[in-house]
Design a protein around this nucleic acid. Structure first.
Lengths: 212, 212
DNA sequence: GCGAACATACCGACTGGTTGGTATGTCGCA
DNA sequence: TGCGACATACCAACCAGTCGGTATGTTCGC
């Protein structure tokens, strides 16, 4: 989600520099494989600064997930698709935005929370919960639009909440598949997954043959 | 995919015991967080045995992905849904089987290849390729049935190959979401993702209102 | 308006335990 | 007697985390 460093101003404090470094290194190498020394080197701060701001490496993981939630949450909250009148258009607009954000190597578009939870769900409850908040928070941001679309189109057998979680599942799955690919094909494969999600929703909400 | 130790006979050689241990520990803790010493302890062998059979920890990762491919590939190849006459039934039968395999905590049903590639796609090309083979091999096993279903139902705008990859994406995404959950709700959330996939395919192949 | 008391932010050498990996030895079977 | 399958002992590098210290405010009595 969201490329490394979108429009955010460069971090100034050691804490922010460490969080930016964490996002970058966790995306590229995962959490366990990223050492505190690497984090400090990437951020250009010392170990003293690290443990001044974070009680442990695990605490940095939690803070990185929260930082990620705040960044992405803010980004999507401001996106223009919210202004569309029809809830179905808003849902499809969200998916189109997600497609547009995919590009370059997987570490440029993958999700910090998803990467974190994949590694740490058993070993750190705190990280698991932080990742849960991030991903489910993202889902919740789409829930009202999906509920409205479900009601408007008379869809039965599922709910906006369930559909909003499915959106996140397809996104996370797209990132995993992308990581199996060589760099040239990774983004295309990920986008294709979102295209299937879009088709599913278009069929579900009676928009079968609109132009792509 | 497939619970830990399904029907496989208990491993006898040190190499097999190490591969079984790798599957179990990678699922639970990830690859980077699993040490060679832990692997040896879990397998009940010594470090000498480990490095006798595997040139490095990375080589064990590759072997674990291959072992995983062989186990799961064999399991699905023998599954009874292949006997169904209609390709659409075979595709839905596959999804139903995947749903039936989900249960218990995430480490009992999640995918070794997906976990591996999430962590190691940047740091180890060999592991990335092994995971790619595993996941894309799984996809390819469904490709012919999906091609037949696409042809039979006159579906346009996509292909069996693309749909078969989407199946894997939804499965991988379901596992990631499951890992964000407390143990009680993990399996339900994962199953719900496969249910959406099933609904997508049912709509695509004109099976909208069959009983679930 | 000034100095003592305290707080915050950061530094970098250090430590004890763990890591992946190696070197060498033993044992049973062909 | 030679070779594959292990075991034991060991190592240098690296790991997360600690600690004594400094530099720069901020607060507040006087």
């Amino acid at each position: 989600m969201i490329p490394n460093r979108p429009f955010r101003p460069p971090a100034l404090t050691a804490k922010d520099k460490l969080l930016e470094a964490a996002v970058k290194l966790i995306r590229a190498n995962g959490f366990a494989a990223t050492s505190v020394d690497q984090l400090c080197a990437e951020a250009g701060v010392t170990k003293g600064a690290f443990f001044h701001h974070f009680a442990s490496k695990e605490a940095l993981g939690v803070a990185a997930a929260d930082y990620w939630s705040a960044s992405t949450g803010g980004f999507f909250a401001e996106a223009p698709f919210h202004a569309l009148a029809d809830p179905v258009d808003r849902v499809l607009g969200y998916i189109d935005l997600r497609i547009a954000l995919i590009g370059g190597p997987p570490e440029a578009f993958s999700c910090v929370a998803g990467t974190l939870v994949q590694e740490a769900f058993r070993s750190s409850a705190a990280i698991r919960v932080a990742a849960q908040s991030s991903i489910m928070g993202n889902a919740r941001a789409l829930e009202a639009d999906l509920d409205a679309a479900v009601a408007q189109c008379g869809v039965t057998g599922t709910t906006g909440a369930s559909l909003s979680r499915h959106v996140q599942a397809v996104i996370q799955g797209a990132f995993v598949l992308a990581k199996t690919q060589p760099e040239e094909t990774a983004a295309d494969l990920a986008r294709d997954q979102l295209a299937h999600l879009r088709r599913y929703f278009a069929m579900l909400f009676g928009r079968e043959t609109e132009e792509e």
